[in-house]
Amino acid sequence: MRRTRIAGTGSYLPEKILTNADLERMVETSDEWITARTGIRERHIAAPGEFTSDLATEAGRRALAMAGVAADEIDLIIVATVTGDFSWPATACVVQHNLQAGRAFAFDISAACSGFLYGMSIADSYIKAGSAKKVLLIGAEVFSRIVDWQDRGTCILFGDGAGAAVLVAGEGDHGLLSCHLHADGSFWPLLYQMGQGSRNPAAPASAEQGNPFVQMQGNEVFKVAVRSLCEAGEEALDANGLHADDVDMLIPHQANRRILEATAKRLGIPLERVMVNVDRVGNTSAASIPIALDEAHRSGRIKQGDTLLLNAFGGGFTWGAALIRW
């Protein structure tokens, strides 16, 4: 049976680290307040002149090196991001140029924090259809450019980074077992960014355009997130005839520690089997899962034959889960 498997992973975090102590000097907050509510202690911030495509390129380069795949062997590049270099062209096209992956077609997808899982499902479809044999899937964000650094409800949460995986066609029982995606657009007013879209085109500022930064109603997002993450996780397990005890590692979107803990508890997965790095990287949106996956992989926490459950929830609302047998 043809399955999509992960041949290599990679990630990149900018050098600059912004700690909670640094934030205390920027906005009315404290390390104690941030840590208690989010579990985040520090996050990485892109340097001036460092863009989403730069982070994505480096993460992709590291994933290709691990997989032993040359850039010119890649058939497709997908970049999941809501903070691309431009409205258009796609950041994936910039990455394709940077890597000199000239034979690959390339596009971006926008599904916020669920973007990497959405991209995995798309890549899986291309691979199973035989339209692509090797896919470079990247989640990359520079959220520091779209948050209001005077809004303590959002600026404490987000960090910059990129993660990548090389997906290839394989045979047998190992690889992506299934992917389950959902969305409910009725919730979009709870988490969004106006930016520059058809509702807010590039023009002199006006009252009609509204606040250009990330807007979030945190308590309401929390309630829907935990329920949706658990339902998607259970859906993935049920579809494969598995139970929580069969999961060797849960790799969730690193939104905040309270959501991680609540989700793991409701799914019945002990915290020692949950990959957590939100304390060191913050919420990196679409980059969150691939960064955590790469860290778990390179640190030896993932072993051949392990069953991994990945789940994510993000603006839109979008959410989903994937099961992988390593």
Rank of each mutant, 00 (worst) to 15 (best):
A7S: 15
G10Y: 08
Y12P: 04
E15Y: 05
I17K: 14
L18A: 04
E24G: 10
M26A: 12
V27Y: 04
S30N: 08
E32R: 12
A36H: 10
D54V: 04
A59K: 09
R61M: 11
D72K: 06
L76D: 10
I78C: 09
I78D: 10
A80D: 07
V82C: 13
H97T: 12
Y118R: 07
Y126Q: 13
S131Y: 09
V135I: 13
L137K: 10
I146Y: 11
I156P: 00
L167I: 03
G172H: 08
L177I: 12
A183E: 01
G185H: 08
W188N: 12
L190A: 07
N200L: 00
N200C: 14
A203D: 10
A205V: 09
A207Q: 11
Q215L: 02
M216T: 02
V221M: 09
V226R: 10
C230W: 00
C230T: 13
A239H: 10
M249E: 01
R257V: 00
R258S: 11
A264I: 01
L271M: 15
R273T: 08
V278C: 07
V281D: 00
S285V: 06
A286H: 04
I289Y: 05
I291H: 02
A292M: 05
R298F: 05
D306G: 04
F313V: 02
F317K: 03
A321C: 05
A322R: 02
A322P: 02
